[in-house]
């Protein structure tokens, strides 16, 4: 690194030094992803179906074919709903938990650790567990608890409720992510701020609205960005629970894309779907980061 410590020019150092800190991470990431990124982009403009001998450049052909297929638009819609529901709900629950558990309450450590546990259950298992629990026929929740409450419909086989089911499983599995990030951010708000506010006579509500929330915004947005990216890419959980069904009611872009590439053997179009998913993630992120640059 081109940095020479010099005690005489602290301000110059301030301007120049960070590059040396940044470079290793950038180089490492670039080395890993340069080839895969180019390959993916290259693949997305190729006609390449594994069992067809002819492989050729097709320009935007894969994308045009995608945009003309109703399956794509339906998957996009499902992905959008899934994305919105899981990010917003896991944010709401996560924020509530983080605020509740940032204060000293009974057995706080144990409760926090318990709430984080679902994160460590691999999505495959989480998917199977919820599939079995929500099952209308032999599920403890879907077959016994809900019918006792008067809900007798089969959750997993109902087009709308199947989406609700995978959202429930996703929230179970991923709210802890939001919780952890918000908790960490919450605990770093200097206590002086609250002390000062209290001296000024602020109540709990004012404290929350004028101190806690504004200072949490960056963490909330970053949490939402990652929840959104992960929601767009969720595969195992959904595939295990519904296989994208009933019909295509829970077929997200990640399931559609995976099927296109690995069941339909259409590598070009599969890559095009992956590119579209990245664009969707970029749009969502830009939308969120706009709010970060106050």
């Amino acid at each position: 690194m081109a940095y020479h410590p010099s005690k005489r020019h602290p301000i110059r150092r301030l301007a120049r030094f960070p590059i040396g800190f940044l470079l290793p991470a950038v180089l490492v990431l670039a080395a890993i992803v340069l080839f895969p990124t180019l390959y993916l982009l290259w693949l997305s403009v190729r006609h390449w179906i594994v069992f067809q001998p002819q492989q050729y450049f097709t320009g935007l052909g894969n994308f045009i074919a995608l945009f003309r297929s109703s399956a794509f638009w339906e998957s996009l819609r499902v992905t959008g709903s899934y994305l919105l529901l899981t990010s917003l709900l896991s944010f709401a629950f996560g924020l509530g938990l983080a605020i509740s558990l940032s204060k000293a309450i009974f057995a706080r450590g144990v409760v926090r650790a318990l709430i984080i546990l679902p994160l460590l259950v691999p999505p495959v298992v989480a998917g199977f567990a919820w599939k079995f629990l929500l099952n209308r026929e032999i599920g403890l929740v879907g077959g016994y608890l809900f019918p006792a409450l008067g809900i007798t419909v089969s959750l997993l086989a109902h087009p709308t409720l199947a989406l609700v089911s995978i959202v429930i499983a996703d929230i179970w599995s991923k709210t802890s992510f939001m919780f952890l990030i918000l908790l960490a951010a919450l605990q770093s708000i200097p206590v002086e701020l609250y002390e000062a506010a209290r001296i000024d006579g602020a109540g709990a509500r004012q404290e929350f609205l004028y101190i806690t929330l504004p200072l949490l915004v960056p963490a909330i947005i970053i949490g939402l960005i990652f929840r959104a990216i992960d929601a767009i890419n969720t595969f195992d959980l959904i595939f295990v629970m519904t296989q994208g069904g009933p019909g295509t009611a829970t077929q997200t872009l990640s399931i559609f894309g995976w099927k296109t590439a690995f069941t339909y053997f259409d590598l070009g179009r599969g890559a095009a779907i992956a590119v579209v998913m990245m664009v969707l993630a970029v749009i969502t992120t830009l939308f969120l980061t706009k709010r970060l640059q106050r």
């Binding site: 890993i32 992803v33 080839f35 990652f226 595969f235 995976w258 690995f262």
Partner: peptide
């Protein structure tokens, strides 16, 4: 730009990059 590029790496769906990463 750098921070956004870094974030965009995570956006790649696994099914899309698993083949090139395998080749790599």
């Amino acid at each position: 730009n750098v921070s956004f590029w870094i974030l965009s790496i995570r956006m790649a769906p696994a099914f899309g990059v698993v083949l090139p990463i395998f080749v790599f």
